[in-house]
């Protein structure tokens, strides 16, 4: 059955005809051309498809497209400012080595965004818990966790606790 849904996609009112059996990831990637969210497993075990729906990180591969009617969806394509300014998390992942192959990155950044929106001063344990559903095979997560810690509200005083042990050679 075809039906029309209206939702806010990356800040823009969007109206689109969908089939009942589409999931949100399919709608985004195949119909709306937003390929930032990736399919890594298709069953909610890797988090590569993570997007934010009404403020909550969800696996778009398991989210019925029809259920976003009336909701707000944020994908990685909508995270940077309209003028291209990167979000603080994007900048931090770029400059702290949080990205290697990059396949998990969009989902990882959005999980981190949902966490920080809910809890601006998470502990390392909070960060690990929030990212536990986003698998990464390249980084060992260390620099990913550091990337998130680096944008935690500086006033918390805890954020420089990450010691860089490798010592620059310059």
């Amino acid at each position: 059955m075809s039906r029309e849904i209206k939702f806010v996609l990356n800040g823009a009112q969007t109206c689109v005809a969908i089939e009942d059996d589409w999931n949100l990831l399919y709608l985004l990637r195949e119909k709306l051309g937003l390929t930032g969210a990736k399919e890594g497993c298709g069953r909610g075990e890797c988090g590569a498809c993570t997007v934010i729906v009404d403020g909550l990180a969800v696996n778009s591969c398991l989210y019925f497209a029809v259920e976003i009617d009336g909701k707000e969806v944020l994908t990685i394509e909508g995270l940077a400012g309209a003028d291209g300014t990167l979000h603080a998390l994007q900048k931090s992942f770029v400059s702290n080595g949080g990205i290697q192959c990059g396949f998990c990155t969009p989902g990882m950044i959005l999980s981190a965004k949902a966490l920080l929106d809910e809890n601006p001063q998470p502990t390392e344990a909070d960060i690990k818990q929030a990212l536990a559903g986003n698998l990464c095979r390249c980084t060992g997560y260390v620099q990913i966790i550091e990337s998130v810690e680096a944008v935690v509200d500086k006033s918390s005083g805890d954020i420089n606790a990450v010691v860089r042990e490798t010592g620059d050679s310059d």
Partner: peptide
Amino acid sequence: VQRIGSTQIRNV
């Protein structure tokens, strides 16, 4: 409940 699936799963 805090150990069921991932945050993404628990949200839904």
